[in-house]
């Protein structure tokens, strides 16, 4: 498989400075984009950038490179306890939003929107907790990166767990963010 780190001349590691990566992508694009070059492989450069930009994909790629893509990707108990609250608030939100989206009488809509405010606050609260968890995990990743290169066997399980946890948080935050925006669309 292609080492996406080496596409940018980087060493494989858990954290890549976003600003550095952005600049590298910009510089490489000048010679690799099909508008300027016939044979260069922009699609691979693009894929490499997409992979390294996102912590979940980046760590997954790193694990695959060091030969352990098959590590069981189990989420941690800290994250497992969020499944319930996220599902509950998302369902509650959808139940309130659907009749609102269909309503075309201005006043009834306005009143329903007013009534939804508390559910929206609740959703924001859960998103807030998840963002805090996300920051904690990203800090943990930085800690591992600061000790890099390191004893692989000892950090692989942590990396796999962080990637799994982050993946769920990202998915939840995206689901909740999407609902938040659907609500704002109705305002």
């Amino acid at each position: 498989m292609t080492d996406f780190f080496s596409v940018f001349g980087l060493q494989p590691r858990p954290v890549i400075d976003t600003a550095v990566l952005n600049d590298l992508f910009a510089t490489r694009s000048k010679t690799a984009h099909p508008d300027h070059a016939v044979n260069a492989d922009f699609v691979e450069l693009n894929e490499a950038f997409r992979t390294l930009s996102d912590p979940v994909r980046r760590v997954g790629h790193l694990l695959a490179l060091i030969g352990n893509a098959n590590l069981a990707e189990k989420t941690s108990p800290e994250i497992n306890r969020w499944f319930g609250p996220v599902a509950t608030i998302v369902q509650k939100f959808d139940r309130a939003l659907q009749p609102l989206a269909r309503e075309n009488r201005a006043l009834i809509r306005a009143v329903k929107i007013e009534e939804m405010q508390s559910i929206v606050s609740e959703l924001d609260e859960v998103s807030g907790y998840l963002s805090t968890e996300q920051e904690r995990l990203l800090r943990e990743l930085v800690d591992i990166d600061e000790r890099w290169p390191t004893n692989m066997a000892s950090v692989q399980p942590s990396l796999a767990r962080i990637a799994a946890d982050l993946r769920f948080i990202q998915k939840w935050l995206a689901q909740m963010g999407e609902r938040r925006l659907r609500f704002e669309e109705l305002l």
Partner: peptide
């Protein structure tokens, strides 16, 4: 009544927007 409360609805939405 639906027609006559349009303005009232706008006020309420403005309030919701401000809170958001």
């Amino acid at each position: 009544l639906d027609e006559g409360t349009q303005h009232l609805a706008t006020l309420l939405i403005d309030r919701a927007m401000a809170e958001a």
